[in-house]
Amino acid sequence: MTARYIPKRAALACAALVATGTAWAQSSGSSVNLYGVLDACVVSNKSATGAPVQINGGGCYYGSRLGFRGNEDLGGGMRAYFQLETGFAADNGTLAQGGRLFGRKSIVGLAGGLGAVEIGREYAPAFYLLTSIDPMQLGIGSALATIWSGSPGTGAGRTDNSINYQSPDLGGFAVRVQAALGEQAAPLAARGGDSKGASLTYRNKQLYAAVSYESIANPTGTADDRATTIGAKYDFGSFSLSAIAQSGAWQGTRPESAPSSATSIYSRRFNSYLVGGSVRLGGDTLNATYKRYDDRTAANFDATVLSAVYIHPLSKRTQLYGGISHLKNARASSYGASDGNGGYSGVAAGGSSRIIDLGITHFF
């Protein structure tokens, strides 16, 4: 084997990482865990443009990721914790979330008897509601196709520059609150781009129910995007049923002159609905949902989505899956069906979009 030259600074950095890792391993009351998900699939995409068959690895059913999670016992019932999570495309190895190093999550916090407070890039309260109820788990045909996640833009629920509070369990009830700074530069308004959100949840062995509210100001601070979301999931044992309803108004993003978009769901006023469920078939699982997007600002910008996915576990860590999602547009809209990689564009106005995913997921 041919030896390679290692720059001095790189060698020092590696030595520091090794020394730090050893210190964590020997420190009492602290721990650091490495974890991740690899998800890749073959996609058949039926739309007006784009490659009809693709290999994708950003998350057809789960987002591919590598993460670090750590805790330190501070005594007196207090602990410090952090989580760093990077997303990537398993098909080509590139970073996801616009090339951010820790684009999926980057938080540090303190937790105790009164709850937890954390700072960083964190999911919006509405996102946690969706992930707890949506049978499709935000993969192929996920709730995000028609229901807003509560984050700026149409992204996957993440909010920068946020401070978050999570209450302890209070007889099954819990509260989550988030506030984030838009950090606008002058001459834009100081509070332009600020966001806030909150949720109230209830959980027992069979039932999960929640309500959330999100509001995000536009850059000038003159209007905001906002939505109220309610949902519930009930587990009957061999099957479960889920329902979500959202009423929103994107008055910060959509101007009065263009209240609706033909290619991007969410208008100046909209309602979105989801009903679905999961059926356990031995060790396998079948998930299905029906989603309805109702544009309340302009006519013929609505859409309906039917989705289903079948999951077959090979072990506790590895599973195979096959899914289909079919989106039907109203006469003026041209939305595309989506999976964990995002929406597939190039749909003709009033047309339909269909994707079929066949893939594998490995957890480590």
Rank of each mutant, 00 (worst) to 15 (best):
G346F: 09
E183M: 08
Y62G: 13
G277Y: 04
R280E: 01
P135W: 02
T131Q: 14
T228E: 04
A299F: 13
Q319K: 14
S352I: 12
K8Q: 11
K8N: 11
I216N: 00
S149V: 03
A258L: 12
A16C: 11
T297I: 06
E214R: 12
W24N: 00
T154E: 15
Y266H: 04
A111S: 12
Y165F: 07
R69G: 07
I360T: 04
G112R: 00
I163C: 13
D294L: 03
G155K: 04
A3W: 07
A288L: 13
G323I: 02
H326I: 02
G113I: 05
S47W: 15
Q246S: 13
T253M: 00
A40C: 00
G113Y: 07
S151W: 08
L241C: 11
A10W: 02
R79D: 00
G57H: 06
A89I: 03
R69T: 04
G323V: 09
N71Y: 06
L66Y: 03
G336Q: 00
R268M: 07
Y293G: 04
D134M: 13
G67D: 04
I107A: 03
T154V: 08
K205R: 12
I216A: 04
Q166P: 05
N287M: 15
D134N: 06
G172E: 00
G346Q: 08
G323P: 14
V18W: 11
R69H: 11
G323S: 10
V175L: 15
G231N: 07
S307H: 08
L181S: 15
G36Y: 15
Q137H: 13
